[in-house]
Computed example of a mutant assay.
Amino acid sequence: MRIEFIKGHGSGNDFFIIDEITNQYAFSEQERADMARLLCDRKTGMGADGILFTMKSDHADARMRVFNADGSEASMCGNGLRLVARYVCELLGKKNGVIETMKADLKVGRQEELFPEIHTYQVEISPVLFDLESLPLRLNQSTLVNEKIMQLSDRFTFTALAVPNPHLITLVETEDLQNEVQRQLSEYVNGPNELFPDGVNVSFVKSIQENAIYVRTYERGVGFTNACGTAMSASSLVTCLQKMNRFEEVINVYNNGGMVQCVVHEHDGTFTIDLIGNATYQYKAEVEVNLHDSLYTVISKKDFLEQPDYEKLQQKVQQYLKENM
């Protein structure tokens, strides 16, 4: 089958956007998973963290489904949602919209540039759930907020939450980011284990200064990524709960792929998060895919000219982290 897509990224978290709104594609569930494994394999020359299937919705402006590089489906993806927000808003000629995701309909919209010449979008991250059954996390308690899990570490304290995909977050020092502890812990909870039967995204968070944090995430189904939008949102919320940052204020969140901004809102004990960041297009391509033989051929490929502007932001971020971490 012949497929067109746009390759883009949010904070270096890269995806293929496949438009099922204007194209007459009819993928089976198995084809979606197989396509993600094939196209996202970085050994093939293209590669990505996942595929964003952008579809018609019966009640929202569009629907987003996210398939990870290993073929599993994610309930949400904040960085990917920014790309879908841009694609749908430009397709419909709108500044704001609503995107249907697996767990919720989320507001999205174009925002002022985060950095010169960078397409910037704000997306809503919700619902936020703390009950451990939502992850799931098998502990003999209902929630886990800034507590130890002795099966994992006698040193770190963790907060577990779903936004709505599952996250395990711990606040660390710089030296904890320079060793193999996060990898070892993450591989354990995403392999056969008694705590997280479905795996979990694991984030190590370092406070840099007031309203500025660094987040590194091992993403379930992917591994270490340049950035994970829901992880950065959840991490921002955790820092507000720990009184390191404040609700309703902009938090600059730095990552290996660049930076985003988060604003955490509290309403009568419930939370929502605004995630603001780039939606950068890299290229548009057409491929002939043979899923039966796990092969594809590139028919055409045309680069966008947006990446150099984003790289200027990356250079600024790298300099900031070098001076402050």
Rank of each mutant, 00 (worst) to 15 (best):
Q141V: 07
N140E: 13
E113R: 06
E124T: 06
D131H: 07
E117H: 15
L129F: 08
S126C: 13
V128Y: 07
T120G: 11
E113D: 15
T120Q: 13
S134G: 01
P136M: 12
S142W: 03
L135G: 06
V128C: 07
D131L: 04
E117P: 06
E117N: 15
F115Q: 00
E117A: 15
Y121L: 03
L114C: 06
S142A: 12
R138Q: 14
T143M: 04
R138D: 12
D131P: 00
T143V: 13
T120Y: 09
Q141G: 08
V123C: 01
L139N: 05
S142N: 08
Y121M: 04
P127Q: 12
E117C: 14
T143P: 00
V123G: 02
L129V: 10
F115W: 11
E117W: 13
E124G: 03
V123I: 10
V123Y: 03
Q141M: 06
V128F: 08
E124P: 07
Q141F: 05
I118W: 02
L144I: 10
S126I: 01
T120F: 03
E124W: 02
P116L: 05
L137K: 01
Q122I: 09
T143R: 09
L132Y: 06
R138K: 14
R138F: 15
P116A: 07
E117D: 15
F130I: 13
S134T: 10
E117R: 15
V128D: 07
T120P: 15
F130E: 10
T120S: 14
L132D: 04
L137T: 10
V128R: 00
F130S: 10
E133P: 01
I125V: 15
L114E: 05
L135C: 08
Q122D: 09
E117S: 15
S142C: 02
V128H: 05
E133L: 11
F115E: 03
L129R: 14
T143Y: 02
L135V: 14
L139F: 05
F115P: 01
E124C: 07
P136A: 11
L144C: 14
P136K: 08
P136Y: 09
P127R: 10
L135Q: 02
L135D: 00
L114Y: 01
N140Y: 10
T120H: 07
Y121T: 04
V123H: 00
L114F: 04
I118S: 00
H119A: 14
F115C: 01
E112T: 14
L135R: 01
N140Q: 13
E112D: 15
E112C: 03
E113N: 12
R138I: 13
L144T: 12
S142I: 07
Q122P: 02
R138Y: 15
E113Q: 13
I125E: 05
I118P: 06
V123A: 00
L139G: 05
